[in-house]
Design a protein around this nucleic acid. Structure first.
Lengths: 233, 233
DNA sequence: CGGGGCGTTGACTGAGATCAATTATGGTGG
DNA sequence: CCACCATAATTGATCTCAGTCAACGCCCCG
């Protein structure tokens, strides 16, 4: 898999890495930094569709679909490995397990989108934000980036609002409630989870949909090296 | 592909076809009727994640993921073709185009989920419901089930509410607004779109994400027979 | 040290939820 | 054919969560 990486690219913070309508020729693997997937509406509103952490393949759909229907933007400085589509497709055909692993990643992405629909559609602002924090924390922990319930948190309150269908003002007040309840500390781009059980319970969070702690018999995909087993879940 | 179908099954209306936690051994192809995908929250709320029309493969994720994280329920009487996972996986490996076509379907599903996130997160109730109607209409038209802007509509107002994060009362009032604006007629399980351009514009609907009207060079998957080219889009 | 991004606060507003009936509608059995 | 029942649609009154508008403060960075 590593052989397929043609090159590594750097992006500054707050740059568009992929734009709606683009027809990328390469798959992206995020090696370092944070990106988000988002759509812009005609009225200027933004909807963030997902956040991505190091290890994520955030652009597999263009392997099979001709153009992109959303944007990918960097939240921080990023390092990205690029793999030409052609090489990936050939590899997937020559090694069915690799193809299945890539496909499986897209199925998990879809599961995350479904959970976001549930979150935005049927949970309160308080639970929604708690849920986003739970999910992001677990995914960061899974790649070893959240030891001791502590992690870098480059997602601004405006980003949270645009991801959860809330205004920044209300995000601010809700985060103050989460702090006041002793669940989290969140300041200066740093998140500390003070009460993991309490946070999960406030969010109604069940990490099963992320498929991280897998059953013993599951076949591991080749991106296992990029995605070590969860540590502090 | 048809050879892989081991059998055909019938379901009554309002039955669970697949339940959370199930480990299905077969892929489902909806031949006739309507189903929805949904999650139940601990507080009893329901979030509908997608609606499916004849021709849809609504359960491919279990090909690669061991258990289901949501439910599939029938809205009407349904006829479903079942294909054993083993046969599908083997076919996907022997004929890479089939594997790619299945994978591509899951990528389009994910695109639809993303559009729903955008819908629920950032659009008004009026636009949300208009958008749901646009999407469902286009998908029905694509399989020839919506001639003359008219189609069966088994989705109740409660279903619409649970899919768009709205209460049934508000769905009712919003539908009355859509009717009052001369955009749709919707009564007795029957939808007529009276002003397609107006409806699209109210919804901010752009069908590109459904990937139905494909560019001339795209390789068609084997489910083409189940999914004829769009007619009245 | 100045400016822009981000976080915070207060006052006010409004879209949509909730509660509680009431009225179709369609299917079913007698 | 009709009474009955469950499901679905509709209506009115009231409430509330979250949005909007408008400042202001903080902190980082050049």
């Amino acid at each position: 898999m590593e052989n397929a990486c043609s090159r590594t690219v750097q992006f500054g913070a707050h740059r568009d890495i992929i734009r709606e309508g683009d027809q990328p020729e390469e798959c992206h693997v995020l090696l370092d930094g944070f990106v988000c997937r988002y759509k812009l509406l005609s009225d200027g509103n933004r909807q963030i569709l997902s956040f991505h952490v190091p290890g994520d393949l955030y652009d597999t759909q263009n392997l099979l679909l001709p153009y992109t229907d959303h944007n990918i933007g960097s939240l921080t400085n990023c390092t990205v490995a690029l793999m030409p589509h052609k090489a990936v497709i050939e590899m997937a055909e020559d090694f069915p397990r690799i193809g299945r692993a890539l496909w499986k990643e897209t199925l998990i992405d879809a599961a995350i989108f479904r959970e976001w629909i549930t979150n935005i559609g049927r949970r309160s602002a308080y639970a929604r934000i708690a849920h986003l924090i739970c999910e992001t924390y677990v995914r960061l922990a899974a790649v070893g980036l959240a030891p001791d319930f502590t992690t870098a948190w480059p997602i601004t309150q405006a980003d949270i609002g645009d991801s959860q269908g809330l205004s920044t003002v209300h995000v601010n007040r809700t985060i103050q409630e989460l702090r006041g309840a002793g669940l989290i500390k969140l300041e200066k781009k740093r998140l500390v989870i003070q009460d993991w059980e309490g946070l999960k319970s406030a969010a109604g969070f069940d990490p099963a949909y992320l498929r991280l702690r897998v059953a013993p018999v599951i076949v591991h995909g080749p991106n296992q090296a990029l995605m070590p087993a969860p540590t502090a879940v």
